[in-house]
Design a protein around this nucleic acid. Sequence first.
DNA 1: CTCAATCCCAACCGATTGAGTTGGGATTGA
DNA 2: TCAATCCCAACTCAATCGGTTGGGATTGAG
Lengths: 151, 151
Amino acid sequence: MVQLGRHYGRGPASLAEIAAAEDLPRAYLEQLAFVLRDAGLVASTRGAHGGYELRRPPQDIPMSEILRALEGPLAPMICATDAPEHADLCGRTASCTVNLLWVRVRDAVAGALDGMTLAELVPPRSMLVPLEPSAAAPEPTSNQPLEGALT
Amino acid sequence: MVQLGRHYGRGPASLAEIAAAEDLPRAYLEQLAFVLRDAGLVASTRGAHGGYELRRPPQDIPMSEILRALEGPLAPMICATDAPEHADLCGRTASCTVNLLWVRVRDAVAGALDGMTLAELVPPRSMLVPLEPSAAAPEPTSNQPLEGALT
DNA sequence: CTCAATCCCAACCGATTGAGTTGGGATTGA
DNA sequence: TCAATCCCAACTCAATCGGTTGGGATTGAG
């Protein structure tokens, strides 16, 4: 998807390209590709020189939409699903006071996801740092400095 | 846990009681019980008339603590774990711009969980409210005769 | 017209995970 | 002593998820 975002405006990208770029098996991407298509997020053109293409500019695609398409309704637990249709299969729900918790968690997640668009994940190109194998290294203290950024 | 919350201040509750109250297998609760104990959330007393007991009043126990004890570090994806020690096993992390997303989701969840204490889940007994009538559910149609046996 | 490139789609596989089970202690109050 | 209780590790079992297989259908280019 990010690849598609980067590619946006340049015509369809073939799965083969994307597979190469992301180092993922093409066949696997196919599956994802068509749930995304069914969800109306991407358009496909068949035949030689076909491929996939975003149907909207990346900044108009909230991540929540993508995630819901790919992973189904957001639901930290079955008893707190997003999707009205199978509202509760839990059975226990009535007596389960914990439900409230999950609902809040779900809403928090939904909020985070709604507040973020695909555009934000398309890297400004050039900030692709090559990975260094110094894995276990230098910044042990590292308590997420990212905290402040939640708008 | 909620059971323990409700029981708080009345001495230890045996797993047998809890198992009965929650309709869960006792042996299973045992497992949970002692990860909670190891986490310092509950205290146990052995022997006849023993049982478990909260070590702090419910309103001093954030749900985040319970969840982390039971389920491990919060991490919607491996690449966005809470726990510094296995910071990234993802390998892809460097090139993976999506990481940012997961981090935000994780923080959202953490926020929701931190902002909620066990006390809030211990029902005041008697107020088992039937679920909110809510906005967009005009059609409870057919399905699931499951529950409705509220209280 | 033919053929390679591409999307389309369903069924399958295998490792991981999580809920739950089994079984055998160790402690302690009555 | 004995029953009630906690302690603990190893196990089973089913669902899920990342990924694979294997076959089409469509289309542009030569």
